[in-house]
Nucleic acid binder design. Structure first.
Ligand SMILES: NC(=O)c1ccc[n+]([C@@H]2O[C@H](COP(=O)([O-])OP(=O)(O)OC[C@H]3O[C@@H](n4cnc5c(N)ncnc54)[C@H](O)[C@@H]3O)[C@@H](O)[C@H]2O)c1
Ligand SMILES: NC(=O)c1ccc[n+]([C@@H]2O[C@H](COP(=O)([O-])OP(=O)(O)OC[C@H]3O[C@@H](n4cnc5c(N)ncnc54)[C@H](O)[C@@H]3O)[C@@H](O)[C@H]2O)c1
Lengths: 208, 208
DNA sequence: TTTATTTTGTGATTTTATTCACGAAAAAAC
DNA sequence: GTTTTTTCGTGAATAAAATCACAAAATAAA
């Protein structure tokens, strides 16, 4: 019923709806959302139908109402707290990114092993890794981002599990395995680069 | 024949093969690669079969030979030059990432509108955006990364097209459209966060 | 009010992707 | 040298995803 790509599409519909709302749309049609996200109108309707999101025949979807429903499905009707482990180039970019603020994503702390990174005064404090479990429990955080080097990722993952973390977004280029207790999404940027390279090379290749 | 997710899998097989090679494996089986990447062995063999990558019955695949073939399919048998537009938090993280060096991905320059970012002396110089077209043509770069704020992304995209860029990896949270001349991969990190939130929330939800 | 038009919602159909299953080849064991 | 074991390669079968197509509802027009 709920596959990864279907949920990714719902997020995109939500983003498209936000954009259309900012252009003063009051209602949108499946056709608009399809155009904005690059899928067919019936794909949009089928996705909505599966989550019980309904509109009005001939009237489309009320943007405000649609956003409420999408946010509800996506679990974004309440703030979601994340911690970041590894405050290097990437970790810092995520912590400093103000765009998450607009959404309900809150990065509440960073953890590192390098004392030079510590900063207890920042909005999202940067703390020693030893304080991870205590912080996560005290603040009821169950989502984490791994942004440490590949060789450190498995160890950090195990610490996160012990700290009661339930979901991990892993940027290190190794595959961490999900299990019943912890959902892991591995996001390998290098793989995304390679994918682009492939499609550019095959399209421009003079042999076809 | 060649779909996006199939190519993503090939990249993962390649990464797995590199890791197994570093563990002194000389040959690998479809079963090993499946385990390492989270797919079935027959998926691995089918993917290989589609690209004419073959091994030996009972002997599996010679790691070195496999890597040569995978790199060839993926277009990674030669260095691939990228430029980054927008040298902010994310752009800087990408430019400074040494991990791309090991692979054949080379970020050869950054471009920005903020003079405070310029630095002609760096290995990958940071240059004014006006020099983009000249640089891209002089250095035969056809791949680019967009790491500017959302409102600037469409404008930058059009400049990249004029500069003869053929492939774009877009980190700004708006959907840029590919056409026959330019391949675009939109990578929305917020969407990835939302996806994780959904799966964690639905799994831990006490209602099911 | 009646008729025409538009757009949803969803089963039926088609397309695409994955897995199954087994013959053939290669290596190992006997 | 023969038999057994293992693993590939791939066509056939199954499963999953996307699209089609159309009745039903809602609105607008007449
Ligand atoms: N920067 C990029 O653009 C980029 C691109 C692709 C992939 N990645 C991946 O993302 C991850 C982070 O990359 P980065 O460029 O930010 O690396 P980085 O080296 O800049 O930062 C890593 C940080 O992790 C900290 N660290 C190391 N071991 C730790 C541990 N055991 N516990 C807590 N903290 C620890 C280090 O002190 C450092 O601050 C890496 O796995 C990298 O391969 C990064
Ligand atoms: N930082 C993150 O973790 C993160 C997370 C999700 C999405 N993103 C997206 O990635 C993009 C970059 O994010 P960031 O945090 O690095 O932003 P940033 O504000 O730190 O940097 C943006 C850079 O782009 C430059 N710029 C602005 N307009 C430009 C133009 N027309 N031409 C050239 N350069 C221009 C700015 O001078 C700045 O250096 C944004 O679209 C953001 O939404 C970032």
């Amino acid at each position: 019923m709920s596959t990864r790509s279907r949920i990714l599409r719902l997020s995109r519909y939500k983003n498209a709806a936000i954009r259309l709302k900012s252009l003063n749309f009051v209602k949108v049609f499946s056709d608009n959302l399809g155009d904005a996200t690059g899928v067919t109108a019936s794909q949009v309707r089928k996705d909505f139908s599966i989550f019980g999101i309904s509109g009005n025949r001939r009237g489309g979807y009320q943007v405000d109402e649609l956003l409420v429903q999408l946010n509800k499905v996506l679990g974004k009707d309440k703030p979601q707290k994340f911690i970041v482990v590894g405050v290097g180039n990437l970790g810092r970019a995520l912590i400093n990114y103000p765009g998450f603020g607009k959404s309900e994503i809150r990065i509440v702390a960073g953890f590192d092993i390098d004392p030079a990174k510590y900063n207890r005064k920042a909005d999202a404090p940067i703390l020693p890794i030893d304080e991870l479990a205590g912080f996560a429990k005290a603040n009821e955080v169950e989502l984490a981002i791994i942004a440490v080097p590949d060789f450190a990722a498995q160890g950090v993952f195990e610490k996160l599990i012990k700290a009661g973390i339930k979901g991990v977004l892993n940027f290190a280029p190794i595959r961490l395995k999900s299990d019943d207790n912890v959902t892991v999404h591995n996001l390998n940027l290098e793989t995304e680069f390679e994918n682009l390279i492939y499609f550019v090379n095959t399209k421009t290749s003079p042999t076809e």
